[in-house]
């Protein structure tokens, strides 16, 4: 399958949402792979060569945050969050849609308002010169990233996420655990 065909199959979203999805998921996949590789190299280095990677601990922490928030917009607009849809067939399609829109509103405003505070905390941390232990990276940048990705999530959810719900395309993917 060509790359174009692969993208079209896995990302049926229109235009800009498709590209946001593709780029962010490639980022999160790459980071996840690096997390795995980092742990393996760190453990092997420590066990065989008495030499562990300084800062592996904090690189893992940063990688985790980057991966999770890169994933946030797509899983949110696709409705992948865990939902108990016990009453769906009792309520009927129309009510489920109304409730879906209500959830879209709550989810987006949660992300939007929380991100304002997260961004303020990030700025405060930068102002005070807080840095990570080994690599001396200002921790505020990562916090800013979290805030920005939250806003992207809110924006995508309020537009394409709401559109999907109205189209009745709100089959939530269930993972469980």
């Amino acid at each position: 399958m060509s790359i174009k065909g692969w993208i079209e199959k896995h990302y049926p979203e229109p235009n800009i949402y498709r590209w946001i999805g593709v780029v962010l998921e490639v980022v999160s996949a790459t980071v996840l792979f690096s997390l795995m590789a980092l742990t393996c190299v760190d453990v092997v280095g420590r066990y065989l060569f008495n030499n562990s990677i300084n800062g592996a601990f904090e690189l893992t922490q940063m990688g985790l945050a980057i991966m999770v928030f890169a994933q946030m917009p797509l899983i949110t607009w696709r409705g992948s969050h865990v939902v108990v849809d016990l009453l769906d067939h009792v309520l009927g399609n129309r009510i489920v849609k109304v409730l879906g829109i209500f959830s879209v509103f709550i989810v987006s405003s949660s992300f939007y308002f929380l991100a304002i505070r997260i961004y303020e905390l990030a700025e405060r941390s930068l102002r005070r010169g807080e840095v990570s232990e080994y690599l001396k990276i200002p921790t505020g940048y990562l916090t800013e990233y979290i805030a920005i990705m939250s806003w992207v999530t809110a924006a995508c959810m309020l537009t394409y996420g709401a559109y999907r719900v109205l189209k009745g395309n709100n089959e939530s993917q269930q993972f469980g655990e």
Partner: peptide
Amino acid sequence: LTLASNRVIGTVQDYNLSVIP
């Protein structure tokens, strides 16, 4: 808001949670 923000910032950077992915 700070309570919730700290939970977001802290949880996604929790080293112990790297086992999940």
